[in-house]
Computed example of a mutant assay.
Amino acid sequence: MDSRPSNLPEAQILLIEDNPGDVRLIEEAFHDGQINNHLHTVTDGREALDFVHRQDEYVDAPRPDIILLDLNLPRVDGEDVLHEIKHHPELEHVPVIILSGLDDELIESRDLDHDADEDAVLEKPVDPGEFVDVICGFDDFRLSIVRTRDE
């Protein structure tokens, strides 16, 4: 049995992803990994900015514990969203995992304004087990992880 306390609060995860198939993969990965979370999903960059700035329909949105960000978004590009997040005083220390269909060389060649220096980049598609392991590796997020069965 797991020795971690089961009364930890749910992790607030913001998923910024426009592909319904990738959203489903991520939901399944969290379910299979038994991560205690509340997944908030927005499907374009404009919605993401509204969520993080708590405006319009997201005025009561919680502050995310971790953000999963697709770079190729409609309306507002993912790079612009990343810049806004990393320059927001309440969000600058929130881990961001960039989800990308681009290969490593293309990611490195993009100017991400050094906003993602401390965060991770995952190439899509990702193995659900590896995906959960990467997310569990973030120290700020680890405290919000609850597994209900032996590993």
Rank of each mutant, 00 (worst) to 15 (best):
D119P: 09
D117Q: 13
A29K: 04
E108N: 03
R63P: 00
A48K: 03
S100P: 03
V121W: 06
L49K: 02
L68G: 01
A48T: 06
H53F: 09
L68I: 13
A61F: 10
I135G: 03
E17K: 00
R149I: 10
F138T: 04
L106E: 05
L102D: 08
P89K: 11
F141S: 07
R24Y: 12
I145M: 03
D18K: 08
L49R: 09
A11L: 08
F51C: 00
F138N: 03
D104A: 11
P125R: 14
V94T: 13
S109L: 10
N72T: 14
I107V: 11
K86Y: 15
N7H: 05
Q34Y: 07
E17G: 00
L82T: 09
R110T: 06
L143I: 06
V134S: 12
D44S: 02
D115L: 04
I26A: 02
E118G: 08
P9R: 01
N19I: 02
R54V: 03
L73V: 07
N7Y: 12
I66M: 10
Q34V: 09
D65S: 14
L102I: 10
R63E: 12
D70I: 12
T41S: 13
D111Y: 10
E118L: 14
D56W: 05
R54D: 02
L82R: 05
D140A: 15
H31T: 14
T43S: 12
P125M: 15
I16V: 14
V23A: 15
F131T: 07
L49Q: 07
G45Q: 06
E27H: 10
L102N: 10
I85D: 01
S144A: 13
I67T: 03
L68V: 12
E79D: 05
G78I: 10
I85L: 11
T41G: 00
D117K: 13
L82E: 07
F51H: 01
E90C: 14
Q12G: 04
R46L: 14
D44I: 02
H53W: 07
G33H: 06
I26R: 00
H83Y: 08
R54Y: 01
A48I: 05
E47C: 04
S144E: 01
T43G: 08
Q55G: 01
L73C: 07
G33S: 10
C136V: 05
H87N: 14
E27D: 12
G21M: 09
P62Q: 10
A48E: 03
K86H: 14
D60F: 15
Y58S: 06
G137E: 07
R149D: 06
G101A: 11
Q34F: 08
D77K: 10
L99E: 07
P74N: 15
K124L: 14
R142T: 11
